[in-house]
């Protein structure tokens, strides 16, 4: 069942005195349990694509359909609700909610539904899941980049989203941290059936994903043969194994 569908999405920006087409006719279908990775240079429109997919920015053309609903026709309130319950996001410029501990920050989306103590327990579980349980009471500035990304991931995952959008979650990470994050993403996709769309600046980040595509000059470029679990036609890729490796 197609969970997210971008249908001819276009977006234009004014940059300086020119008007640039950031996205030109994006077509993308994502199903539950898919792990999609999109790579592209800066200014390629990756972040914009994710923001449109999340319903935060409206596209200039085309439409975004999530779970059968056209996001363009939804009311503000309904779109906000989606972010709270169905769509989890990990952004580059994410910060912690001011004045809260890491644990409370992660638990925040659940405070409405659950009692305080329950929400915190859930938060602790999620933090453990992504491997940063020790950070629960740390201060934001004490965390390394990798830990921060994983906390942001926990903040997104606690709401048990059906779709997870991650903007360059592996930026500024060393190799070990990168593998850890990608591993978590992968396991979440496979075990919980969450659809994941992530972006990255370059290819070495993306070797754990199922589907890999590039964003260049506003267009999505998919490899000619898009087979699940293999990456072909890319230099430097691993040989086709057909096996999905377990993360962590």
């Amino acid at each position: 069942m197609t969970l997210l569908s971008l249908d001819g999405v276009t977006k234009r920006y004014a940059r300086g005195f020119r008007e640039v087409e950031a996205l030109a006719g994006i077509e993308l279908d994502v199903e539950a349990g898919d792990f999609v990775a999109i790579w592209g240079g800066s200014r390629s429109g990756k972040t914009t694509l994710l923001r449109i997919a999340a319903g935060i920015e409206p596209p200039d053309g085309g439409r975004v359909v999530f779970d059968g609903h056209d996001l363009g026709t939804l009311a503000r309130k309904a779109r906000a609700r989606l972010l709270l319950t169905d769509i989890g996001c990990v952004w580059q410029t994410g910060r912690i909610t001011r004045g809260l501990s890491v644990l409370d920050h992660v638990a925040l989306p659940r405070f409405k539904e659950r009692s305080h103590a329950q929400a915190r327990r859930e938060a602790h579980d999620v933090l453990e899941r992504v491997g940063v349980a020790q950070c629960a009471h740390a201060r934001w500035h004490e965390l390394s980049d990798g830990e921060r990304t994983r906390v942001a991931l926990a903040h997104a995952l606690i709401r048990r989203p059906r779709l997870l959008l991650a903007d360059e979650p592996t930026a500024n990470l060393n190799m070990i941290e990168r593998e850890q994050v990608l591993g978590v993403l992968r396991s979440v996709a496979e075990e919980a059936g969450v659809a994941i769309v992530m972006t990255a600046p370059d290819a070495p980040n993306l070797l754990q994903s199922h589907r890999l595509m590039a964003l260049d000059a506003g267009r999505l470029i998919k490899p000619r043969s898009e087979q699940r679990g293999t990456l072909i036609d890319f230099p430097g890729s691993r040989p086709a194994s057909g096996q999905a490796s377990r993360g962590r």
Partner: peptide, 19 residues
């Protein structure tokens, strides 16, 4: 706030504590 199901109160208190 711990006995209420109110994330808003948590956010408000957090903001006050931080500044």
């Amino acid at each position: 706030s711990r006995h209420l199901r109110s994330p808003l109160l948590v956010i408000a208190v957090g903001e006050l504590r931080a500044s």
